[in-house]
Amino acid sequence: MHWLFSSERPMPSSRKPHVIRCSLPSDLTAYHELVQQVLDKLQELGWKKENIFGVHMALEESISNAIRHGNHEDPAKQVHFHSELAENCFYAQVCDEGTGYDPGVVPDCCLPENLEIPGGRGLALIRAFMTTVTHSDEGRCVTMEKQLE
């Protein structure tokens, strides 16, 4: 895993954000250390438990989606992660090296007719816990932001 820490992106905070950049292998067991590092930093920045839970969910679902559905767990492909953390804002971008997809065609997991389908809930959870979620590069990248009041 390659790590880079620096301060780059302007954040709505009095202090410079904590920046984490890294590339992850397409392995569903290889990103938990990274996620824990983000959660620990948010706790250090004074984030409440319920807000950290939402970030945890968004990271878990976006990174596992990139590995499973984007890269199809291909060891030759990586997931690229960039995050900026501050007292009142969480930002993250997760990009895979897959063929892309149209997030608009993912079935709505919350419709009554889809309730018994085991998959397809990750995107709904990311959208629910984040303030904004955008997709780019033909679905290979998801950018998430959570602003605290």
Binding site: M57, E60, E61, S64, E116, I117, P118, G119, R121
Partner: peptide, 16 residues
């Protein structure tokens, strides 16, 4: 304390 959507999927299969 935490569960992923993959765990939810397993619970849905169990419910069925």
């Amino acid at each position: 304390e935490f569960l992923s959507s993959a765990a939810l999927g397993k619970l849905i299969t169990f419910e069925k």
